[in-house]
Design a protein around this nucleic acid. Sequence first.
DNA 1: CTGAAAGCGCTAACAT
DNA 2: ATGTTAGCGCTTTCAG
Lengths: 355, 355
Amino acid sequence: MPIRINQRPTQRQIAARVGVSVTTVSRILNPSETHPERWASPETIEAIREVAEVLGYRRNSLAVSLRTSRSQTIGVFLPVIGDYTLASIFAGIDDVAREHGIMALTASTLDTPGLRSDRAMNMLDHLVDGIIGADAHLGERYLGGLDAQRVPIVLVHRRHDDHVSVTADDVAAGQMAARHLISLGRTRLAVIIGRRYMSTGVDRAAGFVQTALEAGLEEPVVYDHGFTVQAGREAALAMIGRESVPDGLFGMHDLCVLGATSVLRQHGYVTGEDVAAVGVYDSPVAGACDLSSIGIGLHNMGRRSLELLLDRLGGSDIESETLPVHLTVRASSDPSLQRTGHTWGTMTPKAPPTP
Amino acid sequence: MPIRINQRPTQRQIAARVGVSVTTVSRILNPSETHPERWASPETIEAIREVAEVLGYRRNSLAVSLRTSRSQTIGVFLPVIGDYTLASIFAGIDDVAREHGIMALTASTLDTPGLRSDRAMNMLDHLVDGIIGADAHLGERYLGGLDAQRVPIVLVHRRHDDHVSVTADDVAAGQMAARHLISLGRTRLAVIIGRRYMSTGVDRAAGFVQTALEAGLEEPVVYDHGFTVQAGREAALAMIGRESVPDGLFGMHDLCVLGATSVLRQHGYVTGEDVAAVGVYDSPVAGACDLSSIGIGLHNMGRRSLELLLDRLGGSDIESETLPVHLTVRASSDPSLQRTGHTWGTMTPKAPPTP
DNA sequence: CTGAAAGCGCTAACAT
DNA sequence: ATGTTAGCGCTTTCAG
């Protein structure tokens, strides 16, 4: 009769019912990894198993953690959550966590190092076994104040020389975008890099600019308004304000490119024609909007970050990884391609075709 | 000299240095909420504070939880993570969590009840104080198997009669969409509802269909392919296949509408002209794509869900809340409005304007 | 094959 | 104003 009313059953209760000690119960129910000495008489084992089953026993992870100093818990820092990119990375992390029965404590830090430290302290209070950070800033030691508590850290998405990281080949992405635009005959290039503390934007811009210069073009203009739709709009306004609208635009995020092209279009610059645009992440919306975009395996990036962290926790030495990127060309840069969703063409609609 | 090498300092260490008992240290450092009897001599208090400071003392949350049966931890279930909607809700939850020093254990369940149960067990093993669920399915008790462990549950985004929930006024959203389309003279309506187990889509469709019928229109056709870009594409193909392309389309998510309109457009149906389209969530991309959309305060919705849960944990009785929605009209439904980013107009671009 | 004992770090009655 | 005792649920030597 499972008569537990409000309380979770404990090993002690099982021990009492079976007539053995908690030690034995512990050994049977949770055989230690290292010493699988689950020696016990078959009858005892059977009895313990049965009572545990009928009582609905579940181990108290907190007690285990307190005893073993391993919490089966990790901390994950995201700069912002409501964004496709970071959310996709987190989805990959979550995937691996599920497979390994690990719980992730997640915190958004709004790209504010101070906030990050506060929440990191809180995480460490919960004895997380390790930390995955997607919100690293260049030129600032990640969680520098807390290194005494040597918790393994793996960075993801954004690199930092001081830490192991899983990133996309951002330099290659920039080169790829530039080569693509140049191959289309574009000569006045510009790039929206997000913020200067993000290695993603900085690295992509580096590859982009370098390739442009090597091709003998003017140095691309750099805009650092951010990576949101709104940031893209602001960048576009800046372009118009300085009367230097590019004919080739590369942006760190599909969204900021969409924001930029929408404003440019309002001002008469037709995407795909007047300005060829390329984004990053190849998000679903890029497909729906005919936006050329450089895809990155975000989900897999998340996966690898936790896999690496787990390797580290398992005692292995780990090294940074760089993931490949690939370009999908659509009508936003090559107007000869079929337009699907929203045409990048003229502003004044003709009479609608008869349905 | 903070000479802790690898180990976090404990109350005992402080007690030893100061020459008091751990009890006193505990009382000073972590005065209980109920009995703020932090009686101690000013010198003692001062000394303890100082040593704690210099040692870099931080309480061990796990030990506290084990002792108090309160973990300052909650569990959050999301159906999927890499999506603007859910991620935004989670951002709101995270906000409140930060303000209250609470940690959130997050898990994606892929809208698979079995997966949810497994991970819920794991969460309960970690003694979460409560659970927020964004992945409820209609017609299925949420976490039905585990109700014995009476952990407070608050649903968000999707309602379920058996639970307190924070949702948008989905019925009103459906009515609003229908009224808008009808006011534009649209008569052949259709709606993409996501999946049938989602109260969001079901409720919105209810309001939508009801309003259409009351206006004397034919019953809108319902498509339940999902709410992603791809789902929208499939729905559109279905429309074309059955030769009943609507002149008014409402979709549960901006993305599925974008997916649908992109395919419809490929087949010659111009958005805003041949078919007026309305989405939900008013995500940034809706703005960039001139998509009319019904906005919901997702961030606030997330906030409220945790606030409610905390109220409940504080002993209050709580009730479900319904949040208001509002429509933003853009060129996708009303072509007289200025188009910004991507025109919904004709397929064949005219000669580009001179930049 | 099994159990006694110790203790992870902390809090909470109950003394004094 | 402070200390003693007890114990949260579990794992882990060390002895039988």
